[in-house]
Design a binder for these strands. Structure first.
Length: 946
RNA sequence: GGGCGACUAGCUCAGUUGGUUAGAGCACGCGCCUGAUAAGCGCGAGGUCAGUGGUUCGAAUCCACUGUCGCCCA
């Protein structure tokens, strides 16, 4: 007869096939319908608040894999903290202002852009940002991220803009804000200042020229008495009209080199280590060096500008190196950061004869250059140099050069009037470094060093931009004398206006409404015009703590965590730290967590020109792969560093997912007929393997918890995967199948397993829940018949105790033995001698005290009643017999050493008869067809012959 | 060019403060089971821990240099 019907085979509604693409939206719809986020918040009201402050993505275009990783990590964090019992709100935000959106809008307007008012452009920008905000929000929700999606923050709302102005007003009041002429990166195409973050470095080919600056005759005595030239090297000939000095390193040796030239002998002054390079560049064939002198002795020499009627000094500068060029550095204070600093120190003129569009102004000093675009000026400048015999050499040079992130054109350095936040006012820089060291935790730890280095090296923060789409800088200029007014009162006046009417008011209202009543200029004037510059978007997002970390959003200052890509060390982390420190005196975050970026499976960064990662576009994830699989995939690698991605690399995660899912399915299936409250078996009465597995689960839960606490979610996933693979699927579940299927339903053997399975299921679903958000919710629902209610995401984190490891180490030893047996059985299987382990008889002898003890005394103590049966169950064999070596040396025949020191084993086909129901070979099974073991005999239907 | 990281099996990664024979998953090879079945299980092969030099009784692990890659900057 078929005994299958007399077994308790697994049964559950939890399907093997995930069908994530179809099922995830259904689960999300239920979360929405039941207002899961809102109800959790209400439930956690008054609990310890955990604030993760969302860094706002830019509301421009579809989301990509980078957004996915970032939002998933945030979601895991929020869900984990929530399960720990914290009140962990998540308020998503969007960065809405800025150049990319404005340029996109302007591009769409085409020729009409010129005739479109600023306010109209702003309106179009707002619509554009709103549209993408919605698109992105839909995608983020589809990723299963839990949050206050109905009430996000957006940097273009009046409340947010007012917050930016609050921060600015405080900075003005405390004296951090200054206005000045500075050379900054400038895009002549976009006609705007660019932040460091808006630059992209690309290789370009530039002219590479050596230019001779003649030493004025009264200085020749210091350089050998003969006419000589200081030779500089530059890749930007167009900046030569703005040259105001030549810098040398005071401690570097300089050589006077005499060499042959095209028409006459030349005497050139260059750094000694660079003489050979110089001679090669000018093509000299022989030379002498009559004089070497330190740079310090050159300082103060006066030089003739190569084509302008002016003299420029030789000055000292530390940054001059002997690595390239000539060691004599062309210095144009209006066109370079180092040059500017040098110029300020030496009192040089800050010349910048270039207008916003990149065209030379009349100040350039050469009639023929006026009106020429600097990108087309290199040839004319070279012409001037040639005419005057000042061009020593000219070639081309390939190097990395900054480009505008939006229009991709090369940028220039140009001196302009800008607004700055001083980084050194009231020791802000030093305080920021100290805060980095003492008040902020960094995950991974090297984030501290990174931000530290950036803070120490950074210049003052240029916060102004000459564009339309942003928060206006509230300042006015006197119409009579031109002086600027930007007081705390004026800023706060504007702040109130913006809070009520939005930032557009600044551009559309009458000037009288923008300034406090009765404002007078020092010159007596009372007529003003408004500043039209707007804030750097980094200043806006860096002020988010002011308007977002507030009660209005259910948040508070400071945030527990900022969690972003590690490009935000320089970006948002820094731009948030500085204003908060200046205004509030404290960092806005307690911990900064960073993740890495994606590279393709060849180790190269993903670039849009190569098609980005289309095979893993969010649409593909949503419609073909499933979010949970991708969430799992993202938790397999080390997301703190570079994350390699490709469709091919996701494959293993799909397999892993199926394994996890099926293990859940098996756990759930084994629970059929179990009523937790009534059928639950006390720990003390649990069978040995069941008691062991729950203890192991406790250890696992503690490890997983530590991993979550440390933001090492990939570690949590790895621990869980290993446990489900090795400890459950390959070991524990294998050994308990017999009791689960064949033991008397409702008996202790059966209920003991079910007690373990029930706890395994509920705990594992919880431990996975922050990562596999949908699958765990589905599994949680499948536990409904066993009294489980609600959402797993509203459930609380499992308790776990017991540090007693004796049972664990005991079982470890048994597993070693099990492995050794399997190793020996393998050849028997391949030869067809045995099928499963249930056909195997094992004889063993052990020379190792500890192991022998574990297999005998410990087994008796930990298994209880029938230790032999217990060992057979754990080891998965039909017979496990210790040979009586001392009294019967012949019994050692056939025993072989194993990988485990001291353990000797012999395996063979068991000669015992097999129980037809449970397939175990046992001594008591009688001969004949349909023979059953003693345990199974009661399942024989009445009237059936044995 | 500078700062910060990374480099371990064909691929993706573990490897807690230096300490037995460097682990796992995928892929690969050989099998088992058919009572988790569009599942499950076992065994096996595969590594000069990027390279070179150093510290140490002992280095994948600490130090220096070199190479390749990434991020940030110049």
């Amino acid at each position: 007869m078929s005994w299958k019907e007399t077994l308790n085979l697994p049964a559950t509604d939890f399907p093997m096939k995930a069908d994530l693409v179809r099922r995830e939206p259904v689960i999300q719809a239920r979360w929405d319908a039941e207002d899961l986020y809102g109800s959790i918040r209400r439930e956690r009201a008054g609990a310890r608040r955990f604030v993760l402050h969302d860094g706002p993505p830019y509301a421009n275009g579809d989301i990509h894999l980078g957004h996915v990783l970032n939002k998933v990590l945030k979601d895991i964090t929020v869900r984990y903290r929530t399960m720990r019992g914290d009140d962990a709100p998540y308020v998503p935000g969007w960065d809405c202002h800025g150049l990319p959106i404005e340029l996109e809008v302007v591009k769409q307007l085409g020729a009409a852009a010129k005739d479109t008012s600023k306010v109209e452009i702003r309106r179009l920008c707002r619509e554009y940002a709103e549209r993408w905000l919605d698109v992105q929000r839909t995608s983020f929700r589809r990723l299963g991220c839990l949050g206050d999606w109905g009430r996000p923050y957006a940097t273009m709302t009046p409340a947010y803009e007012a917050g930016v102005l609050d921060v600015f007003a405080d900075l003005v009041e405390k004296g951090y804000v200054l206005r000045g002429l500075r050379p900054i990166h400038w895009c002549v195409q976009c006609r705007t200042a660019l932040a460091e973050a808006e630059l992209e470095y690309e290789d370009v080919e530039s002219p590479s020229i050596h230019v001779r600056f003649a030493v004025r005759s009264d200085g020749l005595a210091r350089v050998g008495g003969e006419p000589a030239d200081v030779v500089i090297w530059t890749t930007t000939p167009w900046t030569l009209p703005a040259n105001r000095a030549v810098a040398v390193h005071p401690e570097l040796p300089y050589a006077v080199v005499v060499h042959d030239g095209p028409d006459r002998e030349q005497r050139a002054i260059v750094a000694l280590p660079l003489v050979a390079a110089y001679l090669a560049a000018v093509g000299a064939t022989d030379h002498t060096v009559p004089l070497v002198l330190p740079g310090a002795e050159l300082v103060g020499l006066r030089l003739h500008h190569p084509f302008l009627d002016r003299e420029v000094p030789v000055v000292a500068a530390d940054y001059v190196s002997a690595d390239d060029g000539t060691g004599c550095v062309h210095t144009a204070p209006g066109h370079g950061a180092d040059d500017f600093e040098t110029g300020r120190r030496e009192g040089l003129e800050l010349a910048c004869p270039v207008d916003a569009g990149g065209v030379y102004t009349a100040d350039v000093g050469v009639e023929s250059l006026v009106g020429v675009h600097v990108f087309k000026a290199n040839e004319p400048v070279l012409g001037l140099l040639r005419e005057r015999g000042r061009l020593a050499a000219s070639t081309r040079f390939r190097h990395s050069y900054p480009h505008c992130w939006r229009c991709k054109r090369p940028v220039i350095f140009r001196a302009t009037d800008q607004w700055f936040v001083s980084v050194d006012h009231e020791d802000l820089r030093a305080r920021a470094v100290a805060a980095c060291d003492d008040d902020v935790a960094w995950v991974p730890a090297w984030g501290r060093l990174r931000l530290r280095g950036m803070l120490l090296g950074r210049p003052d923060w240029c916060i102004s931009r000459q564009r339309a789409w942003g928060v206006p800088i509230p300042a006015v200029y006197c119409e009579d004398c031109g002086s600027v007014h930007c007081t705390p009162e004026l800023v706060r006046h504007a702040r109130d206006l913006v809070a009520r009417h939005g930032a557009d008011a600044w551009f559309e209202r009458d000037i009288a409404e923008l300034v406090p009543a009765g404002l007078r200029c020092g010159c007596g004037g009372a007529r003003f015009r408004r500043e039209t510059d707007i804030f750097d978007v980094w200043f806006e997002s860096g002020s988010s703590w002011r308007s977002v970390l507030t009660d209005a959003h259910g948040l508070q200052f400071p945030a527990d965590v900022y969690l972003e890509g590690h490009d935000q060390h320089r970006g948002w982390f820094q731009s948030s730290l500085l204003p908060a420190l200046a205004v509030r005196g404290a960092p806005p975050f307690r911990t900064c967590v960073t993740h890495g970026f994606f590279i393709d499976d060849r180790g190269e960064k993903l670039s849009k020109s190569k098609g980005g990662m289309k095979e893993l576009a969010p649409q593909v994830i949503f419609e073909q792969i499933g979010v949970d699989i991708v969430r799992l995939f993202l938790m397999t690698g080390n997301y703190f560093g570079d994350v390699p991605v490709s469709r091919r690399l996701v494959k293993p995660a799909e397999d892993q997912y199926r394994k996890i899912r099926n293990t859940f399915r098996f756990l759930l299936g084994g629970l059929a007929g179990f009523a937790p409250r009534e059928d639950h078996v006390d720990v003390a009465h649990l069978r040995a393997p069941d008691r062991w597995v729950l203890q192991t689960l406790d250890v696992l839960a503690a490890d997983v918890e530590r991993a979550y606490e440390a933001f090492e979610y990939q570690r949590a996933a790895a621990l869980l995967r290993d446990f489900m693979d090795h400890d459950l699927s390959a070991f524990y579940l294998d050994i308990v199948k017999d009791r689960l299927y064949c033991a008397k339903p409702g008996g202790v053997d059966h209920r003991s397993v079910q007690t373990a399975l029930f706890r395994l299921a509920t705990v594992l679903v919880k431990l996975w829940a922050p990562i596999l958000v949908h699958t765990c919710e589905e599994a949680w629902s499948a536990l409904a018949p066993f009294g489980i209610e609600g959402s797993v995401h509203a459930a609380t984190w499992p308790h776990h105790g017991s540090d007693d490891r004796t049972r664990l180490t005991w079982m470890e030893q048994l597993r070693e033995v099990r492995t050794e047996i399997q190793r020996l059985v393998d050849p028997l299987r391949k030869s067809g001698e045995v099928g499963s382990g249930q056909d195997v008889a094992v004889r063993w002898n052990c020379l190792d005290e500890t192991l022998a003890h574990a297999l005998s005394v410990d087994a008796a103590a930990l298994i209880g009643d029938d230790a032999d049966e217990g060992l057979r169950e754990i080891l998965g064999v039909a017979e496990f017999v210790r040979v009586n070596a001392p009294e019967d040396p012949a019994a050692l025949e056939g025993l072989a050493p194993t990988g485990r020191e001291g353990l000797q084993l012999a395996v063979a086909r068991s000669q015992l008869r097999r129980c037809e129901r449970c397939w175990r070979r046992r001594a008591e099974v009688p001969e004949g067809a349909d023979a059953l073991c003693a345990r199974c005999e009661p399942f024989r239907p009445h009237g059936t012959a044995s």
